[in-house]
């Protein structure tokens, strides 16, 4: 095979002038990162939900009901110890689901960091008066403030990690099938279609952004960038209408008459009852916690 010789001008990594790189080029990359991370997350979550773990084996209806019980329990509880217990429970369940604490912590992290940042003022005496325990550059940190902030953080972490565990351990098809037993099938089916076709539109948007990035040597002017965004959004809307029309016709041609009929669910087994019993036990405990 002949050796490929690159010309000298192609070997260098000349950066575009700063004045051309600033601002408008970055938004395409940021959009691309958003599209790519969403796609990646959907695929990775699919891997976790197909593992042979304890939670993955539970029937979707029972699993959804159980997780809702625990989330409601964490919402009702007034005790930090109880909320800490729910948080520990979520991470313990991540082990028996063969997911491990890492991916669960990674999913919980953004909400935790966001809450940590916005809760910072609560610790100071100006917002939460009380006994001063620390002085930070002249501002007093109060014990009451620290307790309030800590309690709020534990509640958010417990609820978000429980919701994330539900998402990680449930295949999308099972999730929508289970949801269809609790909400009108119109919404469950529409939600499933939304999920399915969001992929198509994200891929279209990603391809557009990638093509724009490939064609942009330095940076586009802000006006051109905004026109590009408007054009892509309009294209997506047009594509959404087109796909909706095709999907609608395909549904009608297969006998869809406006009424949805779901597939029969399998009967609940022993492990489903154990899960429901355990989750409702946590819920009942929260009434006085």
């Amino acid at each position: 095979m002949a050796e490929v010789i690159l010309p000298e001008w192609l070997k260098g990594r000349e950066e575009a002038p700063a004045s051309l790189r600033a601002g408008s080029a970055g938004f395409i990359e940021r959009s691309l990162v958003n599209f790519a991370s969403t796609m990646k997350r959907l695929y990775v979550d699919g891997d976790y939900s197909s593992k042979k773990g304890a939670l993955q084996a539970i029937e979707p209806r029972a699993k959804l009901a159980g997780f809702f019980f625990i989330i409601i329990a964490a919402s009702l509880a007034h005790s930090a110890v109880f909320l800490g217990g729910v948080l520990v429970l979520a991470f313990a369940l991540s082990f028996v689901s063969r997911i491990g604490p890492g991916p669960l912590a990674k999913r919980t992290f953004p909400a935790f960091v966001f809450t940590s940042v916005i809760v910072i003022p609560v610790i100071f005496g100006a917002v939460t008066p009380g006994r001063e325990v620390l002085d930070v550059f002249g501002a007093s940190v109060t014990g009451e403030g620290l307790r309030s902030a800590g309690f709020f953080l534990v509640r958010v972490a417990a609820m978000v990690s429980t919701a994330m565990l539900l998402s990680l351990t449930t295949r999308e098809a099972d999730f929508f099938r289970g949801l269809g037993r609790f909400v009108p099938s119109f919404f469950a089916t529409a939600l499933f279609l939304t999920f399915r076709y969001a992929f198509v539109l994200i891929k279209t948007a990603e391809d557009s952004a990638l093509a724009m990035k490939a064609r942009t040597i330095a940076g586009a002017r802000a006006v051109e960038s905004r026109t590009w965004f408007a054009g892509r959004a309009a294209l997506l809307l047009k594509k959404a209408y087109g796909v909706a029309e095709e999907v609608g016709m395909a549904m009608v041609s297969r006998g869809f008459d406006g009424k949805l009929k779901g597939a029969a669910a399998r009967a609940l087994r022993g492990r489903d009852y154990i899960w429901l019993g355990f989750a409702s036990f946590v819920l009942f405990l929260s009434f006085g916690a």
Binding site: F192, L193, A198, A240, A244, E245, V247, M251
Partner: peptide, 8 residues
């Protein structure tokens, strides 16, 4: 339904 789902 498809239009609402695609709109979403």
């Amino acid at each position: 339904m498809p239009l609402l789902a695609l709109g979403a």
